[in-house]
Design a protein around this nucleic acid. Structure first.
Lengths: 294, 294
DNA sequence: CGGCGGCTTGATTCGAGTCAAGAACCGTGG
DNA sequence: CCACGGTTCTTGACTCGAATCAAGCCGCCG
């Protein structure tokens, strides 16, 4: 079997290669070994499930092209999108590591998708043979987890406008990382609603606001970002959590008005109004931890 | 070095051992090797940070006793708790796997805590030597991730009452899993608020409702669950995502009124009112995917 | 042309947040 | 043993963001 690496250019395997490399798999031997185990599966079209909820079918799934989303449902059918996935992403590592647990998760195609699969036993074998591959996949999982956390922070604590703005920023950044530089994001307002934990109607109104602010394009139904700067500013977007060493420079902290001089303030700042709200004013804790050291 | 496994009974290492075993580390050799690398660190008292936000200090942290929480902050200081942690849990695996990325995450002690640490290089060495340990830790991360997802689903899509109920159920189940069988949960209303993405005031009112329903104890400030059944019912709690094979039987799906006959309904159900809301009615997609297969 | 999916709008309701006090409780120290 | 000070919990009044309900519209695809 000749080197797939050399043979079939970036067309199909490109994104996966890039992803694996960015996760720390650098030897061509390993990359080639992985590619050799990947089988192409029939594509999935927009709207269909790539990974159905329920038991794992014995293989891991890789998104080779297109956009997908990882989602779960409430008992009433209500959907929550946990994260979007792009070319090169593994769709269902959870099922590989904890096969029993995550029956309540599924992956749906948001655009038509190309899918690759790799048998779980092949994967295990590969990991056994190349420990660094195991680490890379662990990293991939962690990266996804850090997306979950970020989303949780935003859904739990941000108003609609910044929540949506952040979501859009994240998508722009991640698309860029896989070479999609168009300012247009191929999501429907419903997708956004399900990801942001908002109703469609309210997403729509939020969009109107974003358009009014000249951040989103005013014409056409597509979601087209015309002012990334302001968008990132609005969302206080810091792409650091996405762990993309590459072309990330300009996605760094762009606070508009907010303070936050150093990263996260440390305890013992100049105490101010010490009212008891949630845990909002860090001051609280700051003061607290100063005093509590007894 | 004699076997710590044999020597220092369950007092200190017990929870960690139990955790590792539940993650699939079964050989005593491996367990012993791990324990031998763990150093005891000064405890942390209620309110202090166990893991400060920012760069990793070169070691991984294990919670040996007490309750902690993994949290992040918005720029305005607003806190979101991502997950609670119990004895035996690793606090900061993220920093081990993706050291650069997750500066925006920290761990705080919710009760006084006992802490163990293990140098990153020791950990790497151990993983290299015992691949199954690497897998176990990967599993641990995934488990945490599945907690994030569940929380995201609830925060994004559930009203306060069930959100809080679910949160409480999760804590009960997880405490049980580490041998804490008391019906009392040592959290403050503020902690709950930060975890549920609600304001303290509203948490308080939700509590009043839960008490009125005779689900929470009426007297005393502590959060004491007097009717787990109803609580779980209210929350439609299914502990499956926690991956606890043990005493989990009674935490299974306990739907009160809701339908959901089989797990997650499959496509092609009897179509009903096909209005376009979010993606609420699964019917939508059901119908969709039936039709879209062209 | 018809029909459906996705986008818009307006009216209305309601859950949850904010503000502002006050009460209960707990650990501490006299 | 009690008084003090600070968290934590409660309550009430009021506001506001977001959901819901209900149409209507637009553009695409068969």
């Amino acid at each position: 079997m000749t080197s797939l690496l050399k043979r079939s250019g970036p067309q199909f395997f490109g994104p996966l290669l890039q992803k694996l490399r960015s996760l720390g798999v650098d030897s061509d031997t390993e990359l080639d070994a992985v590619l050799n185990r990947i089988k192409v599966r029939a594509g999935t079209r927009r709207g269909e499930d790539i990974v159905a909820p329920g038991r794992s079918p014995g293989h891991a799934t890789v998104l080779m092209d297109g956009v997908a989303c990882l989602y779960g449902r409430l008992h009433d059918g209500n959907r929550q999108i946990y994260a979007f996935q792009y070319s090169g992403d593994f769709c269902d590592l959870h099922q590989h590591v904890l096969p029993e647990t995550n029956n309540e998760v599924a992956v749906a195609a948001i655009t038509d998708c190309s899918i690759g699969i790799i048998e779980h036993k092949d994967l295990e074998q590969l990991i056994a043979q190349y420990p660094s591959l195991g680490l890379a996949l662990w990293r991939a999982s962690m990266l996804e987890a850090s997306i979950f956390r970020k989303r949780l922070l935003n859904v739990g604590r941000q108003p609609a406008l910044q929540r949506v703005a952040h979501l859009l920023c994240e998508q722009l950044a991640r698309r860029e990382a896989v070479g999609l530089n168009s300012a247009t994001i191929p999501l429907t307002q419903m997708d956004l609603a399900d990801a942001a934990g908002l109703s469609i109607v309210h997403i729509n109104r939020t969009f109107q606001e974003l358009r009014r602010l000249n951040i989103l394009s005013k014409e056409g139904r597509a979601i087209k970002v015309v002012d990334r700067e302001r968008l990132a500013g609005l969302a206080s977007f810091d792409g650091n959590y996405l762990n993309m060493p590459q072309l990330l420079s300009h996605w760094q902290v762009k606070i508009e008005s907010a303070p936050t001089p150093a990263e996260h303030r440390r305890p013992c700042h100049p105490p101010t109004s010490a009212t008891r709200l949630c845990s909002k004013p860090v001051l609280q804790e700051a003061i607290g931890s100063c005093r509590q050291h007894r």
